[in-house]
Amino acid sequence: MSPTRRVQRRPARGAWILQPVSVVWLVVLWLLLWGRISPGLVASGLVVALVAIALFPLPPIAIEGRPRPIPVLRFLLRFAWDIVRASVGVASLAFRRDQEAPTAVIGVELVTRSDLMLTLVAEVLSLVPGSLVVEVDRTGPILYLHLIGVRDRADVERERARARETEARMIRAFGSPADRDALARDRAARPLGASAAVTSASTTGAPGDPEAPR
């Protein structure tokens, strides 16, 4: 598959779902802002939502997945735990004496082909352990993450595996059938832990072998 073919240009099947979803979300937002529910508020919210959607139409996004309750619950619990752990971890880094500790920028190859899933994975990874999205390559797709609190190559590879595992959890929770197939194929070809680096040059060193600083 050529890189250009992977980038979706046309609205895919299922794009029509987006508009009702947006309307419902805007009405919920309206009710949350008012802080109570009454028939008049629902009606006025509906009017405001429809006007807003008509004036500012959103670009079509393919929503193909269907959430599965148990994987969603597993993902949410893990996400909450990860946020707590990441926050405590980064907070303790702030108080350590040595502020010259190493960091890293890595490229993580994802298996999803959906823009929406890519966006969600990027959001989630920004909120969980020591990783920050600095660049997105939509054609791979590859997410480039900045890591702190890594000491050596082994730590870097562990973070890479963790990012891929986060994506896998999200695809299992609400990915499209195509993404689930891609995930199964990817895991069969390239099990976690044996994940290859994105660029072959100079990143294939043995784990734990620190590269000379540039």
Binding site: V105, I106, V133, V134, E135, Y144, V198, P210, R214
Partner: peptide, 27 residues
């Protein structure tokens, strides 16, 4: 965070001597 981080990376506002790996730079 992404927008600030991206701008910071592109304008080289990071301590390169602290990086163990920089796969984006290689790319």
């Amino acid at each position: 965070a992404h927008m600030v981080g991206r701008a910071a990376y592109r304008t080289r506002r990071l301590r390169r001597d602290l990086l163990i790996v920089d796969e984006l730079g290689e790319r």
